[in-house]
């Protein structure tokens, strides 16, 4: 087994374990901390694919900013396992079955997608995720959708300010 394969299996196991822990942790703060580990594991996968820019941006945006805000809100609301209302068992069972069905469908769709079949991931080569390639793609091929997205973000930001403003 090569180093890359070992790293891949380690990161995958870590991501799956942490994702499970996000769901079954009783304490919301612990859930968030596990979610942060998931983001780190996914960033590790990006690095294996030689997409360093996407990896680091994933860390800056998700682990560094969004998760801090999550943690912020949860810590300030002081949610504890005791104050959290416990769901009854029948609801839990229904939730598990519904979620499981959704997962099966997703796995099946991804497996049978024609783009994925017979395709191999380029490990440690390829330059799709490098900043130069990505910048050229975003600002040459997809410049109009990209700019429209940024206008959308701006309007969302202004909307948040207007809602949050005391009158």
């Amino acid at each position: 087994m090569s180093t890359t394969a070992i790293l891949f299996w380690f990161l995958s196991a870590l991501a799956l374990l942490s994702a499970t822990m996000v769901l079954i942790s009783k304490n919301p703060v612990h859930s968030i901390l596990w979610l942060i580990i998931v983001f780190f594991a996914i960033s590790g996968h990006y690095i294996l694919l030689n997409a360093q820019f996407i990896a680091i941006v994933n860390l800056i945006v998700y682990a560094g900013a969004i998760m801090v805000l999550f943690l912020f809100v949860v810590m300030l609301m002081n949610l504890n396992s005791d104050s959290e209302p416990q769901k009854n068992n029948r609801l839990r069972l229904a939730g598990t079955i519904a979620g499981g069905c959704l997962m099966l469908i997703m796995i099946d769709v991804v497996r049978s997608a024609s783009e994925v079949q017979n395709a191999t991931a380029m490990v440690r080569e390829g330059n799709i995720g490098l900043i130069k390639t990505l910048g050229k793609v975003l600002f040459v091929d997809y410049v109009v959708p990209f700019e429209i997205t940024s206008v959308l973000f701006l309007s969302a930001m202004i909307g948040a300010v207007v809602i949050g403003k005391k009158d």
């Binding site: 820019f53 860390l59 800056i60 801090v68």
Partner: peptide, 10 residues
């Protein structure tokens, strides 16, 4: 530079 930024934000 982005690496530094990422570490600082964590």
């Amino acid at each position: 530079v982005l690496f530094i930024f990422g570490v600082v934000s964590t």
